[in-house]
C-alpha cells in the first residue's frame, strides 16, 4: 500500500510540476489551478473507493481526476486544447470528466457540484446500488447557499454521499477567518445531523483508513458523512507560480506543510530501488502523455457546433 500511495501522490505531483513548467510556453490553452500540496486529500480518499463509486470535484481538480483513475493522456491533451482531450478541448482544466472512471464533473463556480453529487447519490439509492458518491469542495464552498441546502437534502433522504471539504484556508487570497464568523466547518455539517470529523490532509494513511471506515457506514445505508481535511495550497490560486509576494500570506505559513509533505515522506520510507522504479515509470508515463498531447490534432472547426444538444444536427437546423 505504501508503494501504491507513493506512486499515486508522486504521479500527481510530477504531472502538475510538468504542467507548471510547460505553462510558460503557452502550449497549455487553459487556466490551471494546481493541487500541489493538496494531493494527499484526493489520493487518501479515492484509494478507499471502488471503480464504480462516483466523484464530483472543483476547478482545482487535477489531483481528484487522476486519483480516481481518470485517463492521463486525455487530461494533458485537454489542457492543450486538443481533440483527444477528455472533453475534446471544450471544457479545459476546470471541467475534467471521465465517466468510465466515475469522475462525473467539476465546476468553475464554487459549490456547484455539491448538489449534483447529492442528486447522483439519490439515483444510486433509488436503484438499490451500493456504490457511493464523494463530493469534493473547498472551504469557500461552505459559504455558498447550495452547500447548506444540499446537506439538508442529503440528511433528509439519507443519501449515500461522503462530503469531503478540502480546507486549504484560502478562497483565492482571503483567509477563512476573514470570511466565516465561526470558522468551524465540521460544526456546520453536525448542525444538520451529519457526523463530521477533521482530518490531517498530509496524513495519507490516516485519510485512507478513516475513509474506508466511514464508507462502510455510507455504503450500508447509514446516510451521509462529512470529512473536513486540512491542507495547504503551495502555489498561487490560478497559474503555475507562487503568490507569497502578494503579501496576503507569509511564506513561513507554508513551511510546516512542506516539511510534512507526504510525497517526500513516503519516498523516504521506500527502498531506493522501489522508489527509483516507481519514479522512472511515472516519468515515462507523464512524458508519454505530454507527447500524446503535442502530437494530437486540435478539434476541427465543425466541432464548435457539436454536442450542444444530445441529438444532432436536427435541433440546430431549426434555428
Amino acid at each position: 500500500m505504501r508503494a501504491r500511495l507513493f506512486r499515486a501522490l508522486y504521479r500527481i505531483r510530477r504531472l502538475e510540476e510538468e504542467v507548471a513548467r510547460v505553462y510558460a510556453s503557452d502550449r497549455i490553452k487553459s487556466p490551471v489551478h494546481l493541487s500541489i500540496g493538496q494531493e494527499a486529500v484526493s489520493v487518501g480518499v479515492c484509494t478507499a473507493l471502488r471503480p464504480d463509486d462516483i466523484v464530483f470535484g472543483t476547478y482545482r481538480g487535477h489531483a481528484l481526476y487522476l486519483a480516481k483513475g481518470g485517463d492521463l493522456n486525455a487530461m494533458v491533451a485537454e489542457l492543450f486544447g486538443k481533440a483527444t482531450g477528455c472533453t475534446m478541448g471544450k471544457g479545459g482544466s476546470m471541467h475534467l470528466i471521465d465517466p468510465e472512471a466515475g469522475v462525473m464533473g467539476m465546476s468553475a463556480v464554487v459549490g456547484t457540484t455539491i448538489a449534483n453529487a447529492a442528486g447522483y447519490a439519490y439515483a444510486l439509492k433509488l436503484r438499490r446500488s451500493d456504490s457511493v458518491v464523494v463530493s469534493f469542495f473547498g472551504d469557500g464552498a461552505t459559504e455558498e447557499g447550495v452547500f447548506t441546502e444540499t446537506l439538508n437534502f442529503a440528511v433528509l433522504k439519507h443519501l449515500p454521499v461522503l462530503f469531503v471539504c478540502e480546507n486549504n484556508g484560502y478562497a483565492i487570497h482571503t483567509h477563512q477567518t476573514r470570511r466565516q464568523g465561526r470558522a468551524d466547518i465540521c460544526a456546520k455539517a453536525e448542525a444538520f445531523g451529519i457526523p463530521a470529523e477533521r482530518l490531517d490532509g498530509n496524513d495519507v494513511f490516516g485519510l485512507l483508513t478513516r475513509t474506508q471506515e466511514v464508507l462502510k457506514s455510507v455504503r450500508a445505508g447509514g446516510g451521509p458523512w462529512f470529512l473536513e481535511v486540512s491542507t495547504y495550497r503551495w502555489r498561487e490560486h490560478v497559474g503555475p507560480g507562487r503568490d507569497f509576494q502578494l503579501g496576503f500570506r507569509a511564506e513561513a505559513e507554508c513551511e510546516p506543510w512542506i516539511a510534512a509533505d507526504p510525497v517526500t515522506r513516503l519516498a523516504s520510507e521506500l527502498s531506493v530501488g522501489e522508489r527509483a522504479a516507481i519514479e522512472a515509470e511515472v516519468e515515462e508515463e507523464i512524458a508519454a502523455a505530454f507527447a500524446f498531447a503535442e502530437a494530437s490534432p486540435f478539434p476541427a472547426p465543425g466541432e464548435l457546433m457539436t454536442d450542444i444538444f444530445q441529438e444532432e444536427p436536427d435541433a440546430l437546423a431549426a434555428r
Binding site: I54, F56, M104, G105, T112, T113, I114, A115, N116, A117, A118, G119, Y120, A121, Y122, A123, L124, G145, V146, E149, T150, N152, F153
Partner: peptide
Amino acid sequence: DAMTGAAIGMALA
C-alpha cells in the same frame, strides 16, 4: 438551487 443541482445529478446518473 440545491434541488435543481440534485436534479442534474440524477439526470447525469
